[in-house]
Design a protein around this nucleic acid. Sequence first.
DNA 1: GTCTATATGGCGATAGAC
DNA 2: GTCTATCGCCATATAGAC
Lengths: 204, 204
Amino acid sequence: MNEAKKDNTEEKILNAAQTVFTQKGMDGTRMQEIADEAGINKALLHYYFRSKQKLFEAIFSKVFSQIFPDIKSLIYSEKPIDEKLGVFIEKYIDLLMRNPFLPTFILKEVNRDPEFLASVIKKQGINPADILQLLEKEMEKGQIRKMDPRDLMINILSLSIFPFASRPLMQIMFFSNDKKAYKEFLVQRKETVKSFVLNSILLK
Amino acid sequence: MNEAKKDNTEEKILNAAQTVFTQKGMDGTRMQEIADEAGINKALLHYYFRSKQKLFEAIFSKVFSQIFPDIKSLIYSEKPIDEKLGVFIEKYIDLLMRNPFLPTFILKEVNRDPEFLASVIKKQGINPADILQLLEKEMEKGQIRKMDPRDLMINILSLSIFPFASRPLMQIMFFSNDKKAYKEFLVQRKETVKSFVLNSILLK
DNA sequence: GTCTATATGGCGATAGAC
DNA sequence: GTCTATCGCCATATAGAC
């Protein structure tokens, strides 16, 4: 019943809440389920986080910050553009392999409360403009085909994220619902997406 | 109070349910809201569809069948492959422009009940194998770059669907939350996706 | 077939003992 | 700080009149 114990409990709650929320979403999650997962009582959840809404917001912020892998060093490195893009795609797919519920969770909740979403993004200090600028510079240098850099960025995100978000559907339609085969497919995509993108934009 | 009226009411319920379910999902939807949208009483919903679950399943099947545009004629036409793919992308994005809630809805619910999903897919008589075979044949003919045809198919779906599913997020991050600008962007994508894909796979 | 009224259960939240 | 017990609400579902 001391502070150490407090910290421990709070952490257990956060972990449990992330597990349940990311898999079932805000609406689908029961406070009881989080309590069970954390091995504590339901009332404690409210003791630490007043309401379900508050707890959810804590988790959403936490999870959201994870979907932006450390790319700052990548942007400002001196690597050639094709290598930068390749590493980005690899890192991103690796991240999703480790957190398979992340894409569905974000996409599900992204529509719930646009204002909250905007505030979370702002808090993250994310600056997509930097990336767009980088891409534009490469286009001017003639390294890659001229196009709207937002298209290129969204294309890369689409190709990386969608196969995870649509996993159950794609797995049934194209892999006879073979889970292992689909997982292997996702691993391979680190390479196939890379070459698909580079084949499209590199000027040789 | 006759059969004509019955049909009319059932139809009104189905339309209302589609409107609400596709925007709020199974968990987020209240039966009262569907009743209001249909301009009838809550009890009538149960009279026609016994339970929320049953009503939801009816809507899911209905909506799911809409996400497969009429592509059979396209597959078996004599057009060259680049034109086939181009028309497919155009038609698909057009479909999503007319039904903007469709991607989010499907992705949200696709994880709920895999067995139900499988049964719905089976009922649709969808045969992805035909498309994959078509693509493989073109690769053998040397029209397009050799790759796993499932990758190509999933790439096209990713590029078409993801920008709709992730709309609120992308709009904030890359378009200063300018709704009109993002809509225009989506319209343009009929062309940009087409050239992105064809640039990547066409052997010149 | 359609309505009003009500039953039933579940969930978020709180009170209060320890 | 943690628990048990319980409140109060809201949503699904049903009963029953018309």
